[in-house]
Computed example of a mutant assay.
Amino acid sequence: MQEMDGRSLLHLLNNPKADWPDREMFVHCGRWKAGERDAFKFEKCAVRTGKWRFTNNAQLYDIANDPGETTDEASAHPEVVDQLRKSYDRWWTSVLPLMVNEDLPRVFANDQPLAIRYHRQLKDKGIPEWSPAEL
């Protein structure tokens, strides 16, 4: 089981001006074809800090000043790219033992209870039209 990830907000509740150090957060889509895990290491992934977002092992964005991520800053800040790349590599190595989807059996739609119920309802009654109520 993975350790809980996060940190306590208690000291901020007690003192809103308390020190809140920056941290790195990691994102990966976690999906790939069987046997292709290593090829997907840098697909649909990111490392984020309060200032930077490093995506797909290539683009670096200053999200504090460019929240729309329109300007790639990787060539202007190679030291940040290097730091975030190393952090991502450490994170990837730490989570590999927790990635269990590689050897799980594939469950086809015909064996998935929700898919079975959906197709049965579609065939027997159809799916009713729905829209949100007027406010």
Rank of each mutant, 00 (worst) to 15 (best):
51 K>W: 02
9 L>K: 07
72 D>R: 07
27 V>G: 12
122 L>A: 07
123 K>S: 12
10 L>Y: 13
5 D>R: 09
24 E>R: 13
12 L>W: 12
81 V>K: 08
46 A>V: 05
43 E>A: 09
84 L>S: 03
33 K>E: 15
76 A>W: 02
134 E>R: 10
92 W>V: 04
87 S>L: 06
53 R>Q: 14
100 V>T: 09
134 E>K: 11
29 C>I: 13
111 D>V: 03
133 A>S: 12
99 M>P: 05
30 G>C: 13
129 E>Y: 11
132 P>D: 06
28 H>F: 14
23 R>K: 15
110 N>G: 15
123 K>V: 10
124 D>L: 06
59 Q>G: 01
109 A>V: 11
59 Q>T: 06
128 P>H: 06
107 V>D: 11
4 M>P: 07
11 H>G: 05
64 A>D: 06
6 G>S: 02
69 E>D: 01
12 L>G: 03
104 L>S: 10
17 K>R: 15
62 D>H: 04
66 D>T: 00
6 G>Y: 03
96 L>N: 03
25 M>E: 15
64 A>K: 04
133 A>L: 14
54 F>C: 03
91 W>T: 02
18 A>V: 04
26 F>H: 07
44 K>A: 09
31 R>G: 15
122 L>M: 08
45 C>T: 14
111 D>S: 12
45 C>E: 03
36 E>W: 11
75 S>Q: 12
27 V>M: 13
39 A>F: 08
109 A>Y: 09
2 Q>L: 07
54 F>K: 01
19 D>C: 08
53 R>N: 08
48 R>C: 04
48 R>H: 10
131 S>K: 07
101 N>A: 09
61 Y>W: 11
135 L>Y: 11
23 R>Q: 14
20 W>C: 05
121 Q>P: 06
66 D>E: 00
13 L>G: 09
45 C>Y: 11
98 L>T: 11
65 N>C: 00
91 W>F: 05
106 R>Y: 07
21 P>Y: 02
106 R>N: 09
109 A>F: 07
64 A>S: 04
51 K>D: 00
28 H>M: 10
62 D>W: 04
133 A>E: 14
54 F>P: 03
92 W>E: 01
126 G>M: 04
52 W>I: 01
10 L>Q: 11
38 D>F: 08
71 T>H: 05
79 E>K: 08
17 K>F: 11
100 V>F: 08
9 L>D: 11
70 T>I: 06
31 R>Y: 15
110 N>W: 08
127 I>C: 06
82 D>E: 14
60 L>D: 02
84 L>N: 03
61 Y>I: 08
17 K>S: 10
69 E>W: 02
99 M>A: 06
61 Y>D: 04
23 R>L: 13
92 W>T: 05
20 W>M: 12
21 P>C: 05
46 A>I: 04
102 E>W: 10
10 L>E: 08
78 P>Y: 00
81 V>G: 07
124 D>E: 09
51 K>P: 00
43 E>M: 12
57 N>I: 07
89 D>V: 08
46 A>D: 10
90 R>S: 13
16 P>N: 05
89 D>Y: 01
97 P>M: 01
105 P>M: 02
128 P>A: 07
130 W>L: 06
37 R>H: 13
123 K>N: 02
70 T>L: 05
88 Y>S: 01
110 N>L: 13
50 G>H: 00
88 Y>Q: 07
7 R>S: 13
51 K>Y: 00
114 L>A: 10
2 Q>K: 09
51 K>G: 00
48 R>M: 13
